[in-house]
Design a protein around this nucleic acid. Sequence first.
DNA 1: ACCAATAATGGTAGCGCTACCATATAACGA
DNA 2: TCGTTATATGGTAGCGCTACCATTATTGGT
Lengths: 344, 344
Amino acid sequence: MRQRRRGSVQRVTMSDVARVAEVSPMTVSRALNQPDAVRPELRERVQEAVRKTGYIHDRIASALASHRSGMIAVILPTIASSMFSDSVRGISEVARARGAQIVLAETNYSVMEEEAAVAALLGRRPDGFIVIGTIQSERTRSQLVRAAVPVVETWDTTEEPVDSLIAFSNRDAAQAMTEALADLGYQRIAFAGVANGDRRARLREEGYRAGLTARALHAPQVVYVEDLTSMRSGALVADMVTALAPQPDALFCLNDVLAAGALLALQRKGLRVPDALGVAGFGGFDFAEHLVPSLTTVDVPRYAIGHEAACVLMDRIEGLADAHKISRTEFQICLRESTRDIIL
Amino acid sequence: MRQRRRGSVQRVTMSDVARVAEVSPMTVSRALNQPDAVRPELRERVQEAVRKTGYIHDRIASALASHRSGMIAVILPTIASSMFSDSVRGISEVARARGAQIVLAETNYSVMEEEAAVAALLGRRPDGFIVIGTIQSERTRSQLVRAAVPVVETWDTTEEPVDSLIAFSNRDAAQAMTEALADLGYQRIAFAGVANGDRRARLREEGYRAGLTARALHAPQVVYVEDLTSMRSGALVADMVTALAPQPDALFCLNDVLAAGALLALQRKGLRVPDALGVAGFGGFDFAEHLVPSLTTVDVPRYAIGHEAACVLMDRIEGLADAHKISRTEFQICLRESTRDIIL
DNA sequence: ACCAATAATGGTAGCGCTACCATATAACGA
DNA sequence: TCGTTATATGGTAGCGCTACCATTATTGGT
C-alpha cells in the first residue's frame, strides 16, 4: 500500500461525516452550503455527525472545486494608521456578517510593493479586491482586469477605476479646507506634505495650491517631511514652519497625525494655537476633537468607506451589483478651536 | 463534450506553461517552488513561459496538494487600536519577507467571537495562528491542539500556552506602574478600567490593586467605562475621577487612549496635570510622548511583539523551532511630565 | 389512473497542483 | 571498463471538495 504523504495528518473529511450520518458526501456538502436543499431530518443528522467527528469544512478544497475562495483581498498603504485601520474595521464587519475572510497586504505607500502585493494575493484567488487608494501601476491594473476579479478602489477619485469605486476627492477636500481657512481671514497658509508622497498626498497638495489660487492668496509655502505617520514628523513641521519667511498665520497639514504633532510641538515651544498660528489637519481622527485646542480637520467617513466598499464588493461577487459602480462619499470641513475667525 | 463548469474562466495553468516551455508540469512546479532543483537553462525557459502566458501560480491548488497554505491567521480584538495594529505591522513585515500572507479576524474583545473566528479560520488551513492575547475558550484551545497547527499567543502571560508565547505580564506591568507612582509620592491612586473587560484588562486592574497593597496605600478606587478604545471614554473617566471622594492625586488608566482622553479633558476643565492630578497610561503610544504635558506610560514593544511572534511562528512552521517556546519581552515604565516627583 | 413536473439524493469527474516514485543521465572512483 | 552513487526530469495518483448530470421519490393535474 502506498505510504501516507508527508505532512498529511489523519484528517476528518466529508466522507467520514457522510459515513457517520449515513448519507452521501454530496448531501453533506449540500447540508453545509445550501441547507435548504436538504430535508430537515438529514440536515440534522449531518450536523450531528459534524459535531461528533469534529469535522472542519476545508475551504481550500472547496475553493478549488467551486472557484469561490470566500476571501477578499485588502491592499492598503499601512495598517498603522487609524485612517486605514478604521476602514479595515468596516470591511471586517461586513466580511464577518457575510462569511468571508480578509487577506491583508501592506504596500508602505510604494507602487512597487503594491504590484508585488496584488501579484501575491492574486495567487490566492480571492473573490475580490478592496484597495485603499487607487491602483497606481498600469501592470497591476491589467493583471486585475485579466483575472476578471471584482475590485473596489476607495479613498480617492480617479478617471478610470479598474472596476468600482468609493470616491471622495482628496483634491477638492484640501481645496475646500484651504478656502475655509482663507474665509476665516487667514492670509498666509502654509502646507505640510510629504516628499515623494503617494497620489493622495500629491492631490491634497494640489488642492491646497488650487485653494490659494481660488482665493487669490500668496504663492504656496510648502514644507516636506519624510514620514507622514508619526507625530515626530509633526514636530519637525512645527520647526520648519516657524522658520518660514514670511511667517505663515496658518498651517494645513496632510493629515491629522502631522497636524497634532505640529500643534503639540508649537504648544511646547510656547506658541499659542490658534493665536500665533492656526492649525488644520486632514482625516477626522478620534483625537482631533479632544485635543486642547481641538483640531480643525477634514472629516472623512473612514469606517463607512470600508463598510460600503465591502458591501459593494460582496454584491458584485454575488452577482447582485453591476461593475463600474461609483459611489461618492462626503468629506466635511470641521472648524474647531485650532483655527479661529480672524475677521470677527 | 462536457460543458464548461459554471464560473470557470479559461485559465492559464501549469500545464500550459509546461507546454510553452517544453518541459513537464513537474519541472514547472519545481522551477517555481525550488528553483535550485532545476537546471538554470530550464529554469529560464520556465520563467520566460510564465511571463509569456501571464501565468499566476494557484496557491489554492498548491495548498490542497501540499498541505501548506502559506497563510498565517491573525486573531486580534480590534484592528482600530495602534496597540494591535503595530503588532500586525510587525507580523506583516515578516510574512512578506518570508512569502506568507495574513488572514485576519477581529474578536471585538469577545470570547464568543474568538471561538467563531478561530473556527472560521481553521477551515482555511492556515500554516499557523498568531493570537493577540491568549486563547480564552477551552473549546477553541482544544480545536487548535487537535488541528495540530502551530500557535503563537502574545501580549500576555499564561500558565499554559497552547503552543508558543511571546509574553509580558500585564499584571506585573500595572503593578510596577502603580508602585512607581507611589514612589513618586502619590498617595491616592485611582484606576480607570473597563467593565466586562478581557483578560488583559482584568490583569492590569489586578496589578494596580497589588501595587497599592505592596505599598500599603489606600483601598482601590476604580472607575469603569464601557468602551476602552475611544478618547471620549477618557473624558468620562476624567469626570468620574474628579467626582471621587476622597479625591485621588493620581489616575492610572488601562491604556493610553483613555489616559490621553482623560488628560485632555482635565485640561479642558481647567485642572492642571500633573499639579491637580497625575495621569499615567499603558501602551507607549506614539502620541503619549508628544502630548503637553507628555504622558507617563508603560511602554510595550508593540511592533517587536508582532515581529517576534511571526518569526517564531515561521520557524515553527518550517520545522526550525520547537513547540512551547516562551519568549519574554520587556515593558518599560516611562515617567514623563504628566506625573511628577512629589517628594522632591 | 396515468403522465408531467418538481424535489431530494447519489455517482462521477474533475478543480490545478505537488508528493512520491520511476527513470534517465551525468559524475565518479577503482 | 564497469558498476555506484548523485542529479535532473517525468509520470501518476491523489489532496478534499463541488458542478453536473442521473436517478429516484413525490406531487399535482386531468
